[in-house]
Nucleic acid binder design. Structure first.
Lengths: 146, 146
DNA sequence: TTCTGTTGTAATTTCAACTATCACAACAGT
DNA sequence: ACTGTTGTGATAGTTGAAATTACAACAGAA
């Protein structure tokens, strides 16, 4: 099972907003065209990002913008905004291990802290990368094109 | 999207094999009962673990065992054995970003190494935890019960 | 050899999540 | 009022997970 593409689309969207905001109105249509997904998918994504304070979206007149400085938006923020996993658990645990078995009734005590440790390693790394970092790479690459 | 429960079931299975191997024949039926999943699920899982050299399975007479010393089985080994994601990519990237858009045609160059970095952080952590480590906790917890 | 218990695997089913898509009311600015 | 856009419900197709049934292949014991 892979992490859904909502995450990479969300980062794509943020980069695109920042890239185009001074040139034109950034509509869901524009973003959808850039990522090559359906505009409705973008709108729903923007709603999730908006709830997390990562973007602002103008109803009616239209247009999306970033909601706070890019240095203050980490990849973890984006990930948490668009990956609504219950309890925030990365690993899906088999639901009902057998309580009558010594292994079954202890497996959570045995494994949970290990899983947390692994998930934390991943989240720590995500926390250390900001959209500003990613945007810097984007500017460089797009700049070199011209 | 969470990582499928095959991973936690696989670890559960290895702990159970090690816990019961000296007392009785460890069949898919026994393992299925401990994890409370279908025996066929266990058999398929054992096949995946077997291909990775993590377990041995006796056809006919029946019974599973670990395939090498527990110190030499890392959680990453188990994870890779049972999570057959194409290319081993943790993140699902949106398939066809728009090549006509400066963001779309650079998004992979912008993001891929970041995604790798994150995945590596997770995998490094998994590589540092062995089944022997987990088994030590299991023995302790199960021992304390008595 | 036949019997028994088990594995290996195909086929089928149920279910949940992803993603695409259509439709349209709510809304803002002209 | 008109136009373009957002916000959101509803629906559909696709994919993968996990359960389940069924049974041939197999190993060892009787």
């Amino acid at each position: 099972m892979q992490i859904s593409s909502r995450f990479t689309i969300a980062v794509h969207v943020l980069i695109a907003i920042e890239t185009f905001k001074n040139e034109r109105k950034v509509t869901s249509e524009l973003l959808a065209s850039s990522a090559n997904v359906n505009p409705t998918v973008i709108r729903r994504l923007l709603q999730q990002l908006k709830k997390a304070g990562i973007v602002t979206v103008k109803r009616g007149s239209g247009g999306a913008d970033t909601g706070r400085p890019l240095e203050e938006i980490t990849l973890l923020d984006v990930y948490n905004a668009v990956e609504p996993v219950e309890n925030g658990q990365l690993f899906h645990f088999h639901e009902e291990p057998n309580e009558l078995c010594p292994v079954g009734r202890n497996i959570h005590k045995i494994m949970d802290h290990r899983l947390e440790e692994i998930q934390n390693a991943m989240e720590d790394k995500m926390r250390r990368i900001t959209i500003a970092d990613v945007m810097a790479d984007a500017n460089k690459l797009i700049g070199e094109e011209i």
